[in-house]
């Protein structure tokens, strides 16, 4: 895919996450469980905004024209979303390993926590891909991307933090079915609206 050719983007993102985690580690040293959880999600939020914001903004006009000629609009938004999802999945799992390494913390239910990270990458990629498309059309502005996407991601982020808190406390998976269901439902809604709206955004 597109950004895979420029590997420095991926390396840069990984370095960005590691640096952030290390800065947090040096300033916090040890954390309470709640802070640990929230801090992780905030680091992931900023990493995700940085990662996904590039997906449309970095494309040159010529290349966009090329995509325009070879593929239809829904295919492009789906491809971008899947690519961003895989990218975020990679970043968040490596970040999680690194985070666990420096901040020791015992997880009650590691499997559920991993599922939460999976869902988190999914939610970030679906919402941010569409907002980055909107922001890039509105003049390649990084601030605009944050302004547009943060209010939209907050509901998902609150659910994710709640779900991961459940995982940390080691509650059984069945307690959290509600949250998982709502997260998946919101993602389905977001993807379907993106599919409907992206063609209008795409043709210029």
């Amino acid at each position: 895919m597109l950004e895979w050719r420029s590997k420095y983007v991926l390396n840069g993102l990984l370095l960005y996450v590691f640096a952030t985690i290390f800065v947090c580690y040096l300033s916090f040293k040890t954390t309470q469980p709640i802070v640990w959880n929230v801090l992780f999600w905030i680091i992931m939020l900023f990493a995700a905004v940085n990662a996904v914001a590039k997906s449309f903004i970095q494309e040159s006009n010529g290349r966009l024209l090329y995509y325009y000629s070879i593929a239809c609009a829904p295919a492009i938004i789906i491809a971008k979303t899947i690519y961003n999802f895989l990218l975020l999945l990679l970043i968040s799992f490596t970040a999680f390993l690194m985070y666990n390494l420096v901040f020791s913390n015992n997880l009650g239910n590691p499997l559920l926590y991993l599922i939460t990270i999976f869902l988190g990458s999914l939610s970030f990629s679906t919402v941010f891909t569409m907002t980055s498309a909107i922001a890039s059309k509105a003049g390649n502005n990084g601030t605009l991307m944050a302004v547009l996407s943060f209010p939209l991601i907050i509901p998902l982020l609150m659910l994710l933090i709640k779900l991961s808190k459940n995982a940390m406390d080691g509650l059984a998976g069945s307690v959290s079915y509600d949250e998982i269901g709502v997260i998946l439902l919101i993602n389905v809604i977001v993807v379907s609206i993106s599919l409907l709206l992206f063609p209008y955004l795409w043709r210029d």
């Binding site: 907050i154 919101i186 809604i189 709206l197 209008y200 955004l201």
Partner: peptide, 17 residues
Amino acid sequence: KISSIYNIFAFPIMIVL
């Protein structure tokens, strides 16, 4: 055009919220 798209995109999320 762009603001219409954002408006439609944001509305269902607000309803959920």
